[in-house]
Design a protein around this nucleic acid. Structure first.
Lengths: 222, 222
DNA sequence: CGACCATTTGATATGGATCAAGCGATGTGG
DNA sequence: CCACATCGCTTGATCCATATCAAATGGTCG
């Protein structure tokens, strides 16, 4: 196999401690929102998992650094998504804000003690974790496809999560996409270009994608 | 990308309904053990998830069939392992016995109602699911490596899970290994041969591997 | 022993990585 | 406000790992 570079170090800060309880119906998270700036670390691999996070705005990436120095992005979390559940004993990945992001933060211990007396909460916690498991399984499936299908799959998934319209905003860089898809940055770029040439998408700006031909994309996704 | 074949259909049977409760300390599963024969389906993708399973003997594979017909094996479960947790609403994968296997079977509803009044059980269920999540994450990491490292990583993991000694018994076929590692069967075979030539392993029989040089293997694993 | 299936081994093709250079946008200092 | 430096992205040329195609070998069960 082949390898390239590592990545630059990032800033870091503790979130202010969570505010008093004020739950809402569907277990929305309880806390003062905290803002993380671009590239700021939310938590690091190996740290004790104190909090669970819900994205209010912005975009978060989780990643791990492989033994050969490459970075594998495990997931992108968009507004509404919850992350930090993967931890058992310690965080198995690191998390960073891709752009300036607001997060709600809740102590795990609080979640657990609520869950202790509340079967609905218990179920909800399990459901969240299981959903995360499914996301990871889908990621594996994505990684088994060819480069074109990976990129297309990524775009379709993002479109669905972001707004379901055909106009996608990419908060992340090409390198982030490459590290998520297990491709080189060049292949990601080339593939996007080819999709544009094929009139399947348009790229008005680097960080914006318009899905022009869904059915073409869907079949490329196979 | 490139593709080859699909796989043969398998037998199928309902497990007998689980026996009355008789818990044990660490949430060992509660039920009459059920036997599944070679290639028999334990549950199928899309089915409602009724049970959770614990392997008493044998080996189980979970897999999903990709849109192009390939089969991706998500995990191998060995004695002591618990599976069937990935389901939320319906099973996201299928499960089959690789060899004749005995399983303990517990109703999910039972687990949930126990968990409702028992925070230790709640935590345990979450831990099991989180462990599954970690396994999936490791699998992703494995899939990003080169063929040699994938095979080596697979062998080392199996050795650790099976008996920690250097003598591995492979319950699964080369095709199973290939479908787990995202490689062609030829590449798996070739890679094993090369490892043998390099005196890193020995292959006394097809289904047996002896780890001869751990340190060499460890460094190939990088 | 013979048929069948799993595995190995060989030859070739190819998708994506790597190496390398050009381009465009953004920001900074003069 | 413009010249220039920087950074992220794109594009081109080449190389290599692994898939694919093909055939031989080995192992198992009737």
């Amino acid at each position: 196999m082949q390898v390239r570079e590592a990545h630059a170090p990032k800033g870091r800060r503790q979130p202010s401690s969570p505010a008093p309880l004020s739950a809402d119906g569907t277990l929305d998270l309880i806390s003062a929102p905290t803002t993380f700036s671009r590239n700021e670390e939310v938590f690091g691999e190996g740290e004790p998992p104190i909090y669970i996070y819900k994205v209010k705005s912005g975009c978060i990436r989780t990643y791990s650094t492989l033994s050969d120095g490459r970075r594998q992005i495990g997931a992108f979390y968009l507004p509404g998504d919850i992350f930090g559940l993967e931890a058992r004993g310690e965080h198995s990945v690191s998390a960073e804000a891709i752009v300036s992001s607001r997060l709600r933060v809740v102590k795990k211990t609080m979640m657990m003690s609520i869950a202790a007396g509340d079967i609905a909460m218990t179920r909800h916690l399990l459901d969240l974790t299981t959903a995360e498991l499914h996301r990871t399984q889908s990621h594996i499936v994505l990684l088994l496809k060819g480069a074109k299908a990976r990129v297309v799959g990524f775009l379709l998934e993002l479109a669905e999560r972001e707004n379901s319209r055909s106009d996608i905003d990419l908060p992340m860089s090409r390198q982030d996409i490459a590290d998520y898809l297990g491709l080189s940055i060049e292949t990601v770029s080339r593939t996007l270009s080819r999709l544009e040439t094929a009139a399947a998408i348009a790229l008005p700006t680097t960080r914006r994608v318009v899905l022009l031909d869904r059915s073409k994309l869907e079949e490329m996704n196979a």
